[in-house]
Simulated scan of single mutants.
Amino acid sequence: MIKESELILNADGSVYHLNLKPENIANLIITVGDPDRIDSITKHFDSVEFKTQKREFQTQTGTYKNKRITVVSTGIGTDNIDIVLNELDALANINLKTREFKEEQQQLTIIRIGTSGSIQKEIPVDAFLASEKAVGFDGLLYYYQSDAFLEKEFAEHLHEYLDLHPHKARPYVVSADQDLVDHFSQDGRVFKGVTGTNVGFYAPQGRVLRAGLQDPNFIDQLTTFKFQDYRITNLEMETSAIYGLSKLLGHKAVSMNAIIANRETGDFSKDSLKAVEHLILYTLDKIITL
């Protein structure tokens, strides 16, 4: 039995941060960083049956073309993903009343719809990218025991190539669910890539305002790195944790990115909201054929 201090529930029996009960979520879950993006997705639904919000975690569950879908906002960063993925899994696979694991484990399908910046010239702004793999620079997965799903050869080559300051966490590499990647990139409009997940937006992604960088060549090295046929294609702040925790907990996940900036060319989308809207519609229409 899981102690009250470890699995914290609200007075109504919902999980602590997400404010959800098991009946409030579907098996198919879309995650977004920005709570305001929830409405941009569910406005296309035929109906919305449930809404809640606590802090940055907003959730709506409804139906799109007869497919029941839950949309959850995570906020920014892998620390928030740690909360969201663990609480979603608890809703699916722990009896919240007895605090015991359910006998039959449920597999969730998790699809991130987010924005990202390309670091390869040939991936232009307003393009879509499905993350085949994610590189985590955050260290989150090292707090969990199992690492059998981590791609250690890839990570070791990257670690040696980057030669980062020793105080930083070693990068780890984890794959998406390949069937989902293939499904969402069938028609050729979607790039496939390796997404770098960073622990911040400024220095961790090589941006300089008033504070200098400890590893000033980090982004240039990421851009030129190659392992087998893989290159680091884009940067954001959640995908590695989504992939890692999904693998650890037995769920399927894919990250769909609207490329709104190209760090190599210096371009930024003329209408990033439109780019995200196009990705939302594309992803929703792919979801109904899963």
Rank of each mutant, 00 (worst) to 15 (best):
residue 12 D to G: 08
residue 158 L to C: 07
residue 126 D to E: 07
residue 123 I to D: 00
residue 71 V to F: 02
residue 284 L to K: 12
residue 252 K to W: 04
residue 73 S to R: 00
residue 88 L to K: 06
residue 265 T to M: 01
residue 55 R to H: 10
residue 271 D to G: 09
residue 59 T to M: 01
residue 203 A to Q: 10
residue 202 Y to S: 13
residue 79 D to W: 04
residue 98 T to W: 00
residue 107 Q to K: 15
residue 33 G to Q: 06
residue 165 H to D: 12
residue 167 H to P: 12
residue 23 E to M: 04
residue 99 R to S: 09
residue 59 T to P: 13
residue 36 D to E: 15
residue 78 T to L: 04
residue 122 E to S: 10
residue 210 R to T: 14
residue 166 P to S: 03
residue 248 L to R: 04
residue 8 I to W: 02
residue 8 I to N: 02
residue 174 V to K: 02
residue 214 Q to Y: 15
residue 132 E to K: 05
residue 231 R to W: 07
residue 79 D to E: 10
residue 170 R to L: 15
residue 271 D to M: 11
residue 34 D to Q: 04
residue 66 N to F: 13
residue 26 A to L: 13
residue 64 Y to N: 11
residue 252 K to R: 15
residue 278 H to C: 11
residue 267 D to L: 03
residue 228 Q to H: 07
residue 121 K to N: 04
residue 199 V to F: 09
residue 159 H to N: 13
residue 229 D to F: 02
residue 153 E to K: 12
residue 243 Y to N: 15
residue 128 F to D: 01
residue 91 L to Q: 01
residue 148 A to R: 13
residue 132 E to M: 07
residue 240 S to T: 13
residue 41 I to G: 04
residue 207 R to L: 14
residue 232 I to R: 00
residue 258 A to N: 11
residue 213 L to A: 08
residue 95 N to F: 00
residue 113 I to Y: 01
residue 41 I to E: 00
residue 185 S to G: 12
residue 108 L to I: 06
residue 211 A to F: 10
residue 265 T to A: 00
residue 61 T to L: 10
residue 258 A to T: 09
residue 49 E to K: 06
residue 124 P to V: 00
residue 130 A to Q: 13
residue 1 M to A: 09
residue 233 T to P: 03
residue 236 E to C: 08
residue 164 L to C: 06
residue 2 I to T: 08
residue 61 T to A: 13
residue 115 T to D: 05
residue 279 L to I: 03
residue 36 D to G: 08
residue 34 D to T: 09
residue 238 E to C: 03
residue 255 S to H: 01
residue 244 G to Y: 03
residue 250 G to F: 06
residue 119 I to N: 01
residue 68 R to H: 13
residue 278 H to N: 15
residue 221 Q to F: 10
residue 102 K to C: 08
residue 225 F to R: 05
residue 190 V to G: 08
residue 98 T to Y: 00
residue 216 P to D: 03
residue 217 N to F: 10
residue 87 E to F: 08
residue 40 S to A: 11
residue 185 S to L: 14
residue 290 L to P: 08
residue 2 I to P: 02
residue 274 K to M: 14
residue 250 G to R: 11
residue 283 T to C: 11
residue 123 I to Y: 00
residue 102 K to M: 13
